[in-house]
């Protein structure tokens, strides 16, 4: 039987990886791995990961990597990039790390147009800690801290990350939302987000809609339906800001 081909920049000794069956993280990380492969930047790319499920990727890649604290991957990568601009600094985080505990870092890095690439997995819950409310939890969605469903009157509306970022960041920034349901498109967005840093154009941010069957308590069919139908209709997929010409 033919085995699926792993990206060259996946670190083989740490495989099989530690994510749950059906989790969307490995698809996002596969897209990142393939994008790094295609751009040939394995040796100068530094990968930083947050706390939460994204932490499980701390030794995922055959790239120099560092784990940080919950929400603090953004400033660590910013500090690294400021110190050594020749490095390609990629931060990976969940919706909690980016939109809640680390939101001040995300917002201000975007405003300063920091030349880093951030990839954020949106799976509508805090998964590592057991499925609590996330900034991205959909209205009515049940989590451990919203057991009767999220009520926007009490906890506000879901964070529209790329929409916010694209409205505050500067010229040359790249902002997109992809989904693991459209892998090729997601990989294209991530590749552009890396290219944008390589060219020194500006801040680069990709949100990836992702899956969490463990905490959603869904089977395969329900998982995919939640991702494509529920999340897909709430969170529009596409590029929100790009310095690249359309035909690129």
């Amino acid at each position: 039987m033919t085995q699926p081909v792993m990206p060259k920049t996946w670190y083989v000794p740490s495989k099989p990886h530690k994510f749950c069956p059906g989790c969307g993280h490995p698809l996002i990380l596969k897209a990142l791995g393939e994008a790094v492969d295609e751009l040939g930047i394995q040796n100068q790319t530094i990968y930083g990961c947050d706390i939460g499920c994204s932490l499980l990727s701390w030794n995922f890649f055959a790239m120099d990597s560092t784990q940080t604290h919950h929400g603090r991957t953004t400033p660590v990568m910013v500090g690294m990039k400021r110190a050594r601009p020749e490095l390609i600094c990629v931060g990976y985080m969940g919706d909690g790390g980016g939109y809640s505990i680390g939101s001040q870092h995300l917002v201000n890095s975007a405003i300063r147009n920091e030349k880093v690439t951030l990839i954020l997995a949106n799976n509508t819950n805090y998964a590592m800690t057991g499925g609590q409310l996330a900034p991205t939890t959909l209205p009515g969605q049940k989590t451990e801290t919203t057991p009767f469903g999220r009520d926007p009157a009490l906890t506000g509306n879901p964070t529209m990350g790329p929409e916010m970022i694209s409205s505050i960041t500067g010229d040359g920034a790249y902002v997109a939302r992809g989904t693991v349901a459209k892998y090729r498109q997601l990989k294209g967005f991530i590749k552009k987000a890396l290219q944008n840093q390589m060219e020194g154009n500006g801040f680069s941010f990709v949100e990836a809609l992702s899956t969490c069957p463990t905490n959603w308590r869904t089977n395969a069919k329900q998982t995919w339906s939640w991702l494509e139908d529920e999340m897909g209709s709430f969170y529009p997929v596409g590029e929100l800001k790009s310095p690249f010409r359309k035909e690129d």
Binding site: R72, G79, M80, R82, A83, H105
Partner: peptide, 23 residues
Amino acid sequence: GFLQTEDEISAGFTVCGAIIAGK
């Protein structure tokens, strides 16, 4: 170099990042 960060948490963590990078 110098960067005025968004808060002290960020100032501390950007220092960590720069040190990891070797500065």
